[in-house]
Design a protein around this nucleic acid. Structure first.
Lengths: 218, 218
DNA sequence: GCGGATAATACTGTATCCATAATTATGAAT
DNA sequence: ATTCATAATTATGGATACAGTATTATCCGC
């Protein structure tokens, strides 16, 4: 009864994850052609698992497969970003609504703890720490809503958004603003007002979206 | 300047589409194991493009890949279906909202034409025709909303829903009910009331969802 | 010298082959 | 007879080899 092997992930999965990270880090910027042979050689693997990984990334929307032409990192237009943000704000708004309704006292406590971290990171201007806590905050809400598919869709869309270089947090006064919006959101949740929580969440995301729009148009 | 070849689709794409159809038709019911060798032989191709096709279907959620264990058609639980419907109703509700705001007179006319087809199919009890027109109606709304990503997400989710055998239309009085709901929806759109259109659309989809829930629990 | 056609090159797409892991069947021991 | 262990079979995962198509470079003609 030894659980030594918890089903080691297939090679193509690992490769897909490595590529995702490189795409998100803009080491492979949008529009670049992906050289299968070179990459396979670089990773010390054959083209087979690499190609399988590219298929996965393609249906995630991170790369675009042009038949007989090869594979390119997806380029997002400004309107793409706006459209995706519109959807995310809707979905996460619903998340906030359901989380407020269904959340347990323990979950509320976890949210407050994360908000503490958030405040500290914001006042000290520690963007990576804020980013991390921010992710946790949203993840906690997703889990509170208890809708796995909702979480799946949101995460897929957020993955695509990562294609763009400009993450709103690192812009002008967004860090401070974002923190205040979170504080407001938490208050709405604690006061058990799902509709208000939904509204605040939507505004929070739209605000981030608009900050990004300004940045990209510069 | 002869466009003889509009980039012939890759083999793995065709295979993926054929498999989708077989899964939707429940020729490959949920839970069944997909025998790569047998299928490849059956299609007269090698396992390589087939495996690539399975990777695509896996990230669409139609099949589940268990490392070193093979590939199985995804099984949806009743709660999965409910969760997905909740999301779809939200997204399509927004679609109806935006379509009402942005729709051109020509688009409104097309909707009316489709509604005509719908009514005829419903009164004659022609389910396949109704199904087709129904798809067109929703597609038209998606296009009117002008949000390509919204359309993408909705279609992805609807694909997953097709895994289940029970399509609400073929149930008790749903055909008639569905048609009436469509009529109501069209009225809301024509009267340029986006909020009402959104509400009606949401109710329309929830009604379909509940009919399905009853069917599956039998 | 410039433009078009043809040949060479390089990369994508598919097939075949091999290795490893999982499952099943068979045999032995209690 | 039942259970556990070991061996054999089968299927998945990965690598290599090959074919076909797109791109690019070179050469010939105008």
């Amino acid at each position: 009864m030894n659980a030594i092997r918890i089903a080691q992930p297939a090679l193509y999965e690992e490769v897909a994850e490595r590529l995702r990270q490189r795409i998100f880090a803009h080491e492979l910027p949008p529009g670049t052609w992906i050289d299968e042979q070179a990459l396979a050689e670089d990773y010390g693997i054959s083209r087979t698992p690499l190609r399988e990984a590219l298929k996965v990334l393609a249906s995630e929307g991170l790369v675009t497969l042009k038949p007989r032409r090869g594979c390119y990192v997806t380029e997002l237009s400004a309107s793409d970003i706006q459209e995706i943000f519109a959807i995310i704000s809707m979905l996460e708004g619903r998340c906030a609504y359901e989380a407020t309704e269904k959340g347990s006292a323990a979950a509320f406590a976890r949210l407050e703890a994360i908000q503490d971290t958030l405040e500290k990171a914001a006042t000290s201007g520690n963007i990576p720490a804020y980013f991390e806590a921010n992710q946790q905050f949203h993840l906690e809400l997703w889990q509170m809503s208890g809708n796995r598919w909702l979480l799946q869709v949101i995460q897929d869309l957020r993955k695509v958004l990562k294609l763009t270089r400009y993450q709103s947090l690192s812009l002008d006064g967004r860090l401070q603003k974002s923190m205040e919006e979170h504080r407001e959101l938490l208050a709405a949740i604690k006061s058990k007002d799902p509709q208000l929580a939904e509204q605040v969440m939507k505004r929070h995301l739209i605000a981030g979206s608009e900050a990004m729009a300004k940045a990209t148009s510069r």
